[in-house]
Design a protein around this nucleic acid. Structure first.
Lengths: 155, 155
DNA sequence: ACTGAAACTTCTGACGT
DNA sequence: ACGTCAGAAGTTTCAGT
């Protein structure tokens, strides 16, 4: 399940940090029964080895003006390599696109997009997505309620 | 677009922290042209006022044994309040469910689920989701490639 | 591999502008 | 509202076990 190079202390540290990325080495030391210096060294190693990809502040979408979450299914016109690459380049440049995944099945994409309002959503779909040469078909669904939203792994 | 109570300094601080949640107030002070103490005060206020919901370490899914991402569409059997509540309670308890959104349209849910392998996915769908009384229909898609994955807001 | 102490960095509250 | 400064807190390196 989990990498054999990690012992129970490492897993505990990762688990604590994905719940609170600002925990100090002193905080960690109290909860994993290790000295602060040891927590510091282990954390450093977990970062260097790439188990920890980074630290992020999670902001409040509603309070910052992006109350609308949208799930958009996109079908590409033809599935040649160039089209897919141009589409990927487009998505990378669009900050309102939080997630973009290529799916099995009908070989299309699913996007998670945040917008301030319906007009911005319409502008995005009609002004950015649909005009792109690679895009054939778009289906938009609006999120009524988000029950859960985390990136935490079930360690 | 963005809350009027926030000036350019606040927005810059939020923007920097959602890119790197471990930035010190000294780091911030260099990039926003404010003293460290002032950055500390503003950050404290942004946390207290709920603009910053928290800080998280982002872990590497692949290296930690969850290479499979799955997008699962769920239709509930009947749409009474009890069924929806029981389903929500179930999702809250399942750590492999990273996201759960109720959508417009056919009034169903979309889940983002991470698993170590296909067997775990099958166990989850057939052993947890389908047996639940509220669940009528499930459609599973596997993510072939993730082009983008962030929670950053386009401030 | 771990602890503990020492040197260094960062944080934060008091004060003055 | 902001900057400066100093005491407190946290981090990290290093010697010792």
């Amino acid at each position: 399940m989990v990498d054999a190079r990690l012992d129970q202390f490492d897993r505990k540290i990762l688990s604590l940090l994905q719940a609170d990325g600002r925990l100090t080495n002193n905080d960690l030391s109290e909860r994993v029964n290790l000295s602060p210096s040891q927590c510091s060294r282990r954390r450093q190693r977990l970062e260097d080895d790439g188990f920890i990809r980074g630290y992020r502040a999670v902001l409040d979408r509603d309070r910052l003006g992006f109350p609308l979450v949208n799930v958009i299914s996109v079908t590409l016109a033809t599935h040649n390599r160039d089209n897919a690459q141009r589409f990927a380049d487009l998505l990378a440049r669009l900050p309102e696109v939080q997630e973009a995944h290529a799916l099995t099945g009908e070989m299309d994409y699913i996007l998670k997009v945040v917008t301030p309002d319906l007009k911005s959503l319409a502008d995005f779909v009609n002004g950015v997505l649909l005009p792109h040469e690679a895009v054939q078909h778009v289906k938009t669904a609006i999120v009524l309620q988000t029950l859960k939203e985390t990136q935490a792994l079930p360690l």
